[in-house]
Amino acid sequence: MSTSYNVLYDSFFALIEKDIDFFLYNNVSNEEAMQIAKNRAKGYLVEAITKFKISCSSDLTLNLDDENEELSDTLTTTEINLLSSLMREKYFERDFSLLKAFQLQFSPKDLQVFSPANERKTFMDMFESIKKENRVLMDNYSSRDRLTGRLKTIDYSKYQNE
C-alpha cells in the first residue's frame, strides 16, 4: 500500500500549469524536460512532507522510497491535494526569496523602472494567500479523521469517575 510520486507530481503540475517557465527548458526533448520538472517537484515534495509532518497531527509515516518512486502510505484525495498545495507554496516561496534578493540589489528608483511596486505587492499578496489557505487546509485536516472525513471528537465519558 503506497502512493506513487507521480500522483503528487500530477496534482502539483495541475496547480502551476499556467507557469510556462516551470516546464520550458532549452535544448532538451519533451521527455528530458518532464524529467527535469519531476526532479524539481521532488524537492518541493520533500519540503511539503516536512511541513506537513510538523504542522499536522496524523498517523501517516510519509516515508520516501526513491527506488520505487513512492510514498510508504496510501494517501486519500484530501492528502494528495494538501501535499500538492504545500508543494505549490514551497515553489512560490523560492520566488519570494528571489524577489527579496532582487529588492536588495537595486535602489528604490531602479525598482520603479524594472519592477513596479504593484507587481511585487500582488505577488506578495498571492504568496501570503497561498500560505493562509494551506494553514486552513492543515487545520481542517488535523481536526478530521483522515479516512472518513468526520470531525474528531473527544468522548468525555471515558474520563468520568464511576
Rank of each mutant, 00 (worst) to 15 (best):
S4P: 08
N6R: 13
N6L: 12
L8P: 07
Y9P: 02
S11T: 01
F12Y: 15
A14C: 02
D19Q: 08
D21S: 14
F23R: 02
F23K: 05
Y25K: 15
Y25P: 06
N27I: 01
V28C: 06
V28N: 05
A33D: 07
Q35N: 14
Q35G: 03
K42D: 09
K42T: 12
Y44I: 03
E47N: 12
E47I: 02
E47A: 15
A48Q: 06
I49F: 11
T50K: 15
T50R: 15
K53D: 00
I54F: 13
I54A: 13
S55F: 00
S58I: 00
L60T: 10
N63T: 13
L64H: 08
D66S: 11
D66H: 11
E67M: 04
D73F: 03
T76Y: 03
E79L: 02
E79K: 04
N81M: 01
L82D: 01
E93C: 02
A101E: 15
D110L: 10
N118L: 14
E119S: 13
R120E: 13
K121T: 06
T122W: 09
T122V: 06
F123Q: 09
M124K: 15
M126S: 12
E128L: 14
K131Y: 00
K131V: 12
K132I: 10
L137S: 06
M138Y: 04
D139G: 10
N140A: 09
Y141L: 01
D145W: 02
R146K: 14
L147P: 05
I154G: 02
I154M: 08
S157G: 07
K158I: 07
